[in-house]
Amino acid sequence: MTNNYQRIYHKLFNFYGPQNWWPADTTFEMMIGAILVQNTNWRNVEKALMNVKPYLTPERMEKLTTEELAQLIRSSGFFNIKAKRIKAFLKWFKTYDYDIATIKKLDKQTRRNELLSINGIGRETADVMLLYAFDQPMFVVDAYARRIFYRLGFNMPSAYDNFREQVEEAVPGSLQLFNEFHALLVEHAKVYCQKMPICEGCPLLEICEQR
């Protein structure tokens, strides 16, 4: 099983190359993007981030009203809900004086539990933040990973954490590996393993059951 996961990673990496994720100028922008991308595509997030660019520090964003923030991120969809989620996240972040280095000193489970306690931060969003902002090696389980692993022939657990733990146990992963693995799966789902798959030319075709 371990070799199968590693084969997938290496085939994708050799095909697509390093992805340099997460696309953001600052760690704070990365975390805001992780909330904005919920239930939408990255193109819509980019528009929202462009609108909110003048306020992309926690101190400036905190001064916006929820209504003002909602209008700025309108293109991301569910903007009223996401504005409230960002405000809830900022409230938590402020308890650490917006200091990422301090949060990194917390143990892994404490960090994850605290993120999950924030209104609107689920497992996937929390793990994306842990991976890309707080330097914690995590396998992010998203809809793309589920789709690709299923089509390849893996019978993965339906529960999020069971899926994540199975991959993490099978792949002795560094931070860089899990960073790339998530980004590569996202790229592959966009290019080949779409809702209607494009199998011709797919770098995983020889190991795929095409379910």
Rank of each mutant, 00 (worst) to 15 (best):
T2D: 13
T2N: 11
N3S: 09
N3W: 03
N3I: 00
N3K: 13
N4T: 08
N4H: 09
Y9D: 06
G17I: 01
N20A: 11
W21H: 04
T27L: 13
F28R: 08
E29P: 14
M31V: 11
N39C: 06
N41S: 07
N41W: 04
R43V: 08
A48D: 11
L49W: 03
N51G: 12
V52F: 00
P54V: 00
T57P: 03
E59D: 11
T65F: 00
A70S: 14
S75A: 15
S76N: 06
S76V: 05
K82F: 10
A83L: 11
K84A: 13
R85H: 14
K87V: 10
K87M: 08
L90G: 08
F93M: 04
F93N: 02
T95K: 06
Y96C: 13
I100H: 10
A101Q: 07
A101L: 05
K104Y: 05
L106A: 06
Q109N: 14
L115S: 10
I121T: 05
R123M: 14
R123E: 12
E124L: 14
T125C: 07
A126D: 08
V128A: 15
Q136G: 11
V140T: 13
R147C: 03
R147P: 06
I148S: 01
F149L: 15
Y160F: 11
R164Y: 03
Q166T: 13
V167M: 01
E168G: 04
A170F: 03
A170S: 15
V171I: 06
V171M: 08
P172G: 08
G173C: 04
S174A: 10
L175M: 02
Q176M: 03
L177K: 05
F181E: 11
H182P: 11
H188L: 01
Y192P: 06
M196D: 04
L204R: 06
L205M: 00
C208R: 14
E209F: 05
Q210H: 10
Q210A: 09
